[in-house]
Simulated assay, not measured.
Amino acid sequence: MYDLFVLGELMIGDTHGYQLQERLKRAVGPVRQISSGTLYPLLSRLVEHGWISLRLEEQEGGRARKIYKLTEAGRERFFELMVSPLDYTAETELMFHFKMSNFPYVTKEVRLASLEQYLNYLQHNLKYVDSIVRMISSKKMDERKRAQVLRMLDHRKHVGLADAEWVAKELERVKAAEE
């Protein structure tokens, strides 16, 4: 998943690891921790695969800065990841956001496919929430607990509906946009 983020950032141009780490921290938000222990092994793996290259840039009075550059193989890998279907996992929302931030580099068809896949994911989750509501409503359980679980599920449903509405509007906007 972070492969797509790094390759997408390098579509903009060469950069150093610290800058990538700072951008990644902003992209994933304040709750998820992205350490050097996460990023630098990923960068090493991307170099090993030939998707990015590394050069050392000498710094005055300090150690050399590692500068990363996207290779042609990395560009191909980026496009493969952009067209690959979204998996239904705990990381689906973040992966969608990574894809969406890279929409300027792909065709309208790829953007539409990503939006449609995410909308399907959201609709799948909404169906799941409805099925859990039906199940809990028919189960024998403490009424206070049932009421609170149903409130929690109502929250999930409202968030999912709002997200699905936004994605549907974005789909229409992208469809109507000129290439």
Rank of each mutant, 00 (worst) to 15 (best):
L54C: 11
E93S: 15
Q59Y: 00
Y18K: 11
V106L: 15
E80Q: 08
R23E: 02
H97V: 09
M141L: 02
T71M: 04
L70R: 10
T92N: 07
T89P: 03
R146F: 02
G160K: 07
V47H: 15
G62K: 04
S114F: 12
Y2Q: 03
L122M: 14
G50F: 13
V106S: 15
V133G: 06
G50L: 12
F96K: 01
Y121F: 15
E60N: 13
Q33Y: 00
G37Y: 04
E172R: 09
P104Q: 10
G17M: 05
M152R: 09
G62R: 06
M100I: 03
P104H: 12
E93R: 15
Q33H: 00
K99G: 01
N102F: 08
Y118S: 02
G17Y: 05
Y88R: 07
H155T: 09
E179T: 12
Y40I: 15
D130C: 06
M152C: 10
Y128P: 03
Q33G: 00
N120G: 06
Y68I: 04
L115W: 04
S131R: 08
E170C: 11
G17L: 04
S101F: 06
Q148A: 08
M95T: 14
R77S: 12
E109L: 15
L70F: 13
Y40E: 14
L70S: 10
R134I: 00
E179G: 10
H16K: 07
K69N: 04
A147W: 05
D163H: 02
L20I: 07
M135G: 00
E143Q: 08
F98H: 05
G160T: 11
K99V: 06
E172C: 02
Y40P: 12
L150P: 04
E57P: 00
L122Q: 13
V28Y: 03
R63K: 10
S137R: 15
R134H: 05
Q21N: 09
M11I: 01
F98A: 07
D87R: 12
K66A: 12
M82R: 10
G13D: 03
E109D: 15
N102P: 08
I12C: 00
A113P: 00
D163M: 03
F103D: 08
E76Q: 12
E58M: 03
L56E: 08
K145A: 10
S137Y: 10
D14P: 09
I12A: 02
L161M: 15
G62F: 08
Q59W: 00
L46M: 14
H124Q: 01
N120A: 11
K175R: 08
D130H: 08
Y118T: 00
L126H: 10
L126V: 13
K25W: 02
E58D: 05
E178N: 12
A113G: 06
T38C: 00
G8A: 02
A113Q: 10
G8H: 02
V174Y: 01
L20G: 04
E57H: 02
R144M: 07
L171W: 09
Y18W: 06
E172S: 06
D154P: 07
V133C: 07
Q117L: 12
A177G: 04
E76K: 11
H97F: 13
F5S: 06
D87I: 06
F78M: 14
